[in-house]
Design a protein around this nucleic acid. Structure first.
Lengths: 351, 351
DNA sequence: GTCAAATGAGAAAACGTTTTCTCAAACATT
DNA sequence: AATGTTTGAGAAAACGTTTTCTCATTTGAC
């Protein structure tokens, strides 16, 4: 015995029309508030549509309108650390416009990328957002000749493309200025490989604010490097730093662990600030880590809004758009003060 | 001046037919290897299709065939730690069958979930995979009356649903047996809140193998709890454990840090084994953590294959399917021996 | 009471496929 | 030579919408 809500075929506009006793053209016009008809007819059709739970078939609509209300999100960031927030932002910006997102994970495999892109184009996506794990690397697939608009988020786009990334220099300034404002004067920058664009960008800003002769140490993006860097600094001659600005939260964690093992107190003896605001690392540390958030979700939102605009035929100036980073204050840079409290307040409100 | 590859309208089967000098019905039959026609005609149509890069419009195909070659993936795991591998597996199982995946992140918001589900149904998805961050919680939305097949992966399904989760008991046994095989006799289980099904399941297996009077401590899923647990154990009377079996890798990390700070060596004095095999935690620890991998990607693959089978109309026995976990040996449980080497070898091959 | 304009609603074409049906030509059987 | 059978290919319907066009009826003006 089938329950009344058992799986059943979807109602079509033909069903709606015959139940309402009108033609399908009238039904369509009633629902879309177009055409001419009596107000009572329009209302009756709409009411019946609501009652039988009619929803138009998007495939049929798309066939006619050349818009599928679907976009593709291409990523090679399997681990998802950067991609996930971007994705969440994209989805958030699009869902209430009725646009759904195809997720395509292409593990740096050009052939797989090609397969995904073709599958998306077959499904008539209105646009593609490309995203990655590094702003200075392209995806392993050329999107410049794809017949739909493309925007790049947190990955390198082609010459005439629209792309979004966070403002590394501004983020770095935010960090340094915060350390200086809390009285730190001897700041050392412990960061990732110099080959990364972000590293050079942040380092440039660091030197511009902290002084051209300020020390920057390049290594890998790991806790181990953070620990090694502390060993290296404290083993060397001369005055020791009273603050470390780290290239990411994992390096920061390594430095904090090493400092603690040396008997140095964070933040009393040395303040530490990270980058990425990776909750799972920064929040679990002792003490919790003050860090720079790249606002990737906002980046995703903007990418989403932009692809939508392009899909609707608006013209968008090509070029790189940088988004400001945000300081998230925890306890690794000094006691809780009014400024901190305010910042924490901010963060709560964003949730 | 437009380059020859500049964005242009997609070719339709009408274009193909007129270029090949046949009717659209002949063109369609040629491409699909159906119908009757001369072999040379068929080959010519196929060749021209290849030359002009013809690809059929999936919307039109879907309209007729009632299959959109599209499925929806619903998740409330915003952080993505569990969802991401599942997603990767799903995608992997489906992409070469031409099926694309809509990603819907519904932040525990029933209204948002409803919106996403309706958008997916409008787009005529062939099925829905629901996934979450906890096997004993439902998504905040009822999928039992949805007109397409649903499978649940790493989340609680309804009574007559098809669902997949990893075998927590078997995973726990794997851990305990490994510790026992390396000579450990006094094993303590430090794990998460007892309210979690997984916790009870693993704890049951732990007691079954290690003895009904073996000690299990429940707390939260945090490093802090791991550290506290070590304090608690070493502060109490009686013989100390020579091994800790932790409920997840973060707890394990906390215990290892606390043990080191107490001057205890891992693995020489105490062996530690984690759960989840979260590369980013387990791999960065000192020493790297031996852990139990829930094989979530495989879980995703199976969920993908299953939803495909259901979409094709096959019948699938409802019920819960559990998948075996895998031991990943690193250095936190004892020296590198032949068994370990073999296991590491295994892992490499899987890559 | 005649004619133009406005109103309400339906018929039909279109979107890009697949599939069923039809039909002429070629071929094979007596 | 008359008949049946096979072959190759096209015409048309169908999928579920939206949109344009057509047309009868009503309304308003004189």
């Amino acid at each position: 015995m089938r329950s009344p809500q058992a799986k059943r075929e979807r109602q079509t506009i033909h069903d709606l029309a015959s139940i309402a006793g009108v033609s399908i053209s009238t039904a369509s016009k009633a629902l879309n508030d177009t055409g001419r008809m009596g107000e009572e007819t329009r209302e009756r059709v709409k009411r019946i549509a609501r009652e039988i739970g009619f929803r138009p078939n998007a495939l049929a609509q798309g066939l006619l309108s050349k818009r599928s209300f679907t976009i593709g999100l291409l990523t090679n960031d399997t681990y998802g650390r950067f991609t996930l927030p971007v994705m969440a932002g994209v989805s958030e910006a699009l869902v209430d416009r009725g646009v759904s997102v195809f997720l395509c994970a292409i593990e740096d495999d050009p052939a797989l990328g090609q397969v995904h892109v073709e599958a998306m184009l077959d499904k008539q996506v209105d646009g593609i957002i490309a995203t990655g794990k590094r702003v200075d690397r392209c995806l392993p697939i050329d999107l410049s000749n794809v017949p739909v608009p493309v925007v790049y988020a947190f990955t390198e786009g082609g010459p005439d493309s629209v792309s979004f990334r966070s403002d590394d220099a501004q983020g770095a300034r935010l960090a340094i200025e915060w350390l200086q404002a809390s009285g730190r004067r001897r700041i050392v920058h412990v960061t990732g490989p110099e080959a990364f664009f972000s590293v050079r960008e942040r380092c440039g800003a660091f030197r511009a604010v902290a002084g051209e002769d300020a020390v920057a140490l390049f290594g890998e993006w790991s806790e181990t490097w953070g620990r090694d860097a502390v060993e290296q600094i404290w083993a060397s001659e001369g005055e020791k730093p009273d603050a470390l600005f780290c290239g990411n939260d994992q390096i920061a964690r390594g430095t904090v662990d090493a400092l603690r093992e040396r008997g140095l107190r964070v933040p009393d003896d040395v303040a530490v600030i990270g980058f990425d605001n990776w909750e799972i690392v920064a929040g679990q540390m002792r003490p919790p880590l003050t860090s720079i958030d790249m606002e990737l979700k906002e980046l995703g939102r903007q990418a989403g809004r932009t692809i939508l605009a392009l899909a609707e035929g608006q013209v968008v100036e090509p070029g790189v758009r940088t988004l400001p980073c945000r300081l998230v204050v925890r306890q690794s840079c000094g006691g809780r003060n009014s400024l901190e409290a305010r910042s924490l307040e901010d963060e709560k409100q964003r949730r």
